[in-house]
Design a protein around this nucleic acid. Sequence first.
DNA 1: TATGAAAACTTGCAAGC
DNA 2: GCTTGCAAGTTTTCATA
Lengths: 174, 174
Amino acid sequence: MSGHLDLIDLKIIESMGENGRIRLSELAEVVGLSIPSVSERLDKLQKNGIVKGFTMDVDERQLGFDIQAFVRVRVDSSKHYKSFMEHVMKEDEIMECYSVTGEGSHILRVMTHNTGSLEKFLSRIQSWPGVMSTNTSFVLSQLKKTRKIGADIIRNNLQDRQVLITYDEKKSRK
Amino acid sequence: MSGHLDLIDLKIIESMGENGRIRLSELAEVVGLSIPSVSERLDKLQKNGIVKGFTMDVDERQLGFDIQAFVRVRVDSSKHYKSFMEHVMKEDEIMECYSVTGEGSHILRVMTHNTGSLEKFLSRIQSWPGVMSTNTSFVLSQLKKTRKIGADIIRNNLQDRQVLITYDEKKSRK
DNA sequence: TATGAAAACTTGCAAGC
DNA sequence: GCTTGCAAGTTTTCATA
């Protein structure tokens, strides 16, 4: 489905993870290809859905988001899943939402202005149908946040997978 | 310190949060200013540290990262904080690390290839000095992940803060 | 799938308001 | 701090290997 990723694709992914606004001319130099070739590969990566988009990293504190928190939510998901999701999508303060194993069914990463707005937010989500409990951990500081995904690591991942695919093919040929 | 952010700056931040590779010409049209003006504002936002950088969003599953997890770690931080940090920085599988309140002192967002590599990772971090326990939640699915920070929300945040500053100034003038 | 060359567009810089 | 205009650089498109 995704064709085949070669080392050049992986280098493009690595470089743009570090600098999403890198020029195609510079990228072409890095990977050792002409600009049109790099441009075409990038298009394909986007069409494949491997590249989902480009964004900017900001200092949230300076924008007045003094509170960051992880909120574990226990949702009776069988019945109320759809309405829970709709609420999650509408809340601008929820930056990320994951369905997870362990205590609670979901983890939210929340960004908000102050303890007052967080309190309001928490009481709001506790009123959603199916929400049984929440458990909040404040973020005191962010020690690491990286977007770089090394080409060599991806290659290892995919090589492993390749081995599996080859193995399955052999089996099914019998 | 950060001068003053007006509505145009906030629109730039909002637009680039949605599309980090937007052209300055397009951005200029969106905010209703000339290209050099927008360019200059963007430079200032970067120099202020409000804009930290630009990145690309990828589909990690397609790159062979089949396992995502949140790992809560309890670290005896007083003594071992520095060495813990150094380890965290070196591990490519740790995408994010937060110091938090609540059960455990840190939360890690981890991305790895399969259960085998996760197991190795977990036993590695459990061997770091000061790490007392870990608690892992697998990510089953990502329901929301947004980078957009609405201009109107930021404005509300900062207006609130402005009120506080004004109030403090009045007090100290007495 | 890659390249080179031309056209179209984008950006950076300077001068002036 | 904004704009206009020009020069330099960048990206896109297309024909070709």
